[in-house]
């Protein structure tokens, strides 16, 4: 059984069909990338999968369970967690507390546990603290644990958002352009972290414009253009696909150079 299955998923905004009859599957293993030009409907697709928006038509199955139209927090509870194209941190909280919020689904303590602090709540809190620090370490953010999240430089904010999402212990993680705004070095580090996440058993679905990252990280690529899926395959297959090249360059000319493709996409 695939981890995620989309069946004819469609979303209209008035007359605009932002996602048009898209079907594909995300296997349990590895990294799957969604690429496509600006405005192709990638983020909208993520909004539909994560429950932020209901689809106009189609079905979304997570581990065989129909999650179509489920409220977003219930989708997350089912084990499907996303990040955002524009980083959305809890800016007034410390870096550590951001990751602790990410651990929300791992805990159970409620209001009475907060007030009375029974042994079970103290144990849970200690476990959350240990786990959050471990994840910060993993993301290279330990030195900033007690800083407010808003004070982090941009690249580290992205890392923090990723660490926070993994803290939720998802079985499928959706990353919306995680490398946007990162320099080459940070991008390479990110690529390694994403591979680690996938190797640890979390299926990764990512949107990315950075072709180098896609080529180095993804096992499979789904290409969308004007809301429709136009190609699917390994990175090498997709790169050689004339329809993909046409979508990116607006012409039929093949472009073997990923850098050129990336520029066109950002154009």
């Amino acid at each position: 059984m695939s981890r995620l299955k989309l069946e004819g998923v469609t979303r209209r905004f008035g007359g605009l069909v932002a996602v048009d009859d898209v079907s594909f599957e995300v296997p349990a293993e590895g990294v799957t990338a969604v690429i496509g030009p600006n405005g192709a409907g990638k983020t909208t697709l993520f909004n539909l999968i994560s429950g932020a928006l209901p689809p106009s038509a189609g079905r979304i199955l997570f581990e065989g369970q129909d999650i179509t139209g489920l409220p977003a927090h219930k989708v997350a509870t089912a084990g499907l967690v996303r990040t955002f194209q524009l980083v959305k941190l809890f800016e007034d909280l410390s870096v550590l507390d951001n990751v602790k919020v990410g651990c929300h689904l791992q805990g159970r303590a409620g209001l009475f546990a907060a007030l009375l602090r029974p042994a079970s709540a103290r144990r849970e809190e200690a476990a959350v603290d240990a786990r959050a620090r471990e994840l910060l370490d993993f993301a290279g953010l330990s030195a900033f644990a007690d800083e407010p999240a808003s004070g982090l430089p941009y690249g580290r904010q992205r890392m923090l958002e990723l660490a926070r999402a993994t803290a939720a212990g998802p079985r499928l993680i959706l990353l919306d352009e995680p490398a946007a705004g990162l320099n080459t070095e940070e991008s390479a580090a990110l690529s390694r972290i994403i591979r680690r996440i996938a190797d640890d058993g979390t299926s990764v679905l990512l949107i990315e414009h950075d072709m180098t990252l896609v080529m180095n990280t993804a096992d499979r690529v789904v290409v969308v253009d004007f809301g429709r899926k136009i190609a699917q395959g390994t990175p090498a297959e997709v790169r050689a696909d004339p329809a993909v090249i046409a979508a990116y360059l607006g012409t039929g000319k093949p472009s073997p150079d990923p850098a050129a493709t990336q520029e066109a996409a950002h154009g």
Binding site: H73, F84, H104, A109
Partner: peptide, 29 residues
């Protein structure tokens, strides 16, 4: 003070910080 430093209080801070992000992490806003 106890609420502030608890799972419950962090969830409130998350709601304050970004409802979308809180929801995406499984918090019933």
């Amino acid at each position: 003070a106890r609420i502030r430093r608890s799972r419950f209080g962090r969830a409130l801070s998350a709601v304050a910080g970004s409802e979308e992000a809180a929801t995406a992490l499984g918090i019933d806003v």
